[in-house]
Simulated assay, not measured.
Amino acid sequence: MPIAVIDFETTGSSPGQGARATEIAAVLVDDGRIVGQYQSLIHTGVWVPPFIEQLTGISNAMLADAPPAAQVMREVLAFTAGCPLVAHNAAFDRAFWRAEALLACEGDATATSAVDASFACTVRLSRRLFPQAPNHRLGTLAAWHRLPDAGRAHRALADATVTAHLLLRLQQALAERLGHAGPGAIDHALLCQVQTWPVAAVDKALARHIQSCRTSAG
Results as ranks from 00 to 15, higher is better:
residue 3 I to M: 14
residue 5 V to C: 10
residue 5 V to I: 10
residue 6 I to R: 01
residue 7 D to L: 04
residue 9 E to S: 11
residue 15 P to D: 09
residue 15 P to S: 09
residue 21 A to I: 13
residue 24 I to E: 08
residue 30 D to P: 01
residue 33 R to D: 12
residue 33 R to M: 15
residue 34 I to V: 15
residue 43 H to D: 02
residue 45 G to E: 01
residue 48 V to K: 00
residue 49 P to Q: 04
residue 56 T to S: 08
residue 56 T to N: 01
residue 64 A to R: 08
residue 74 R to T: 08
residue 75 E to V: 12
residue 75 E to L: 09
residue 79 F to I: 07
residue 88 H to A: 12
residue 89 N to Q: 06
residue 95 A to D: 14
residue 99 A to P: 10
residue 104 A to P: 09
residue 104 A to D: 11
residue 105 C to E: 04
residue 106 E to C: 05
residue 106 E to R: 03
residue 106 E to K: 04
residue 107 G to W: 04
residue 112 T to N: 05
residue 113 S to K: 05
residue 124 R to A: 15
residue 126 S to E: 09
residue 131 P to A: 04
residue 133 A to N: 01
residue 134 P to C: 08
residue 138 L to T: 05
residue 138 L to S: 02
residue 143 A to Y: 03
residue 143 A to D: 12
residue 144 W to H: 08
residue 150 A to V: 02
residue 153 A to T: 05
residue 154 H to I: 08
residue 155 R to N: 03
residue 161 T to M: 04
residue 164 A to S: 13
residue 172 Q to C: 13
residue 176 E to H: 09
residue 177 R to L: 15
residue 186 I to D: 12
residue 190 L to E: 13
residue 190 L to Q: 09
residue 191 L to A: 05
residue 191 L to Q: 05
residue 193 Q to C: 15
residue 198 P to M: 08
residue 198 P to I: 11
residue 208 R to Y: 13
residue 210 I to L: 13
residue 212 S to C: 14
residue 213 C to F: 08
residue 214 R to F: 14
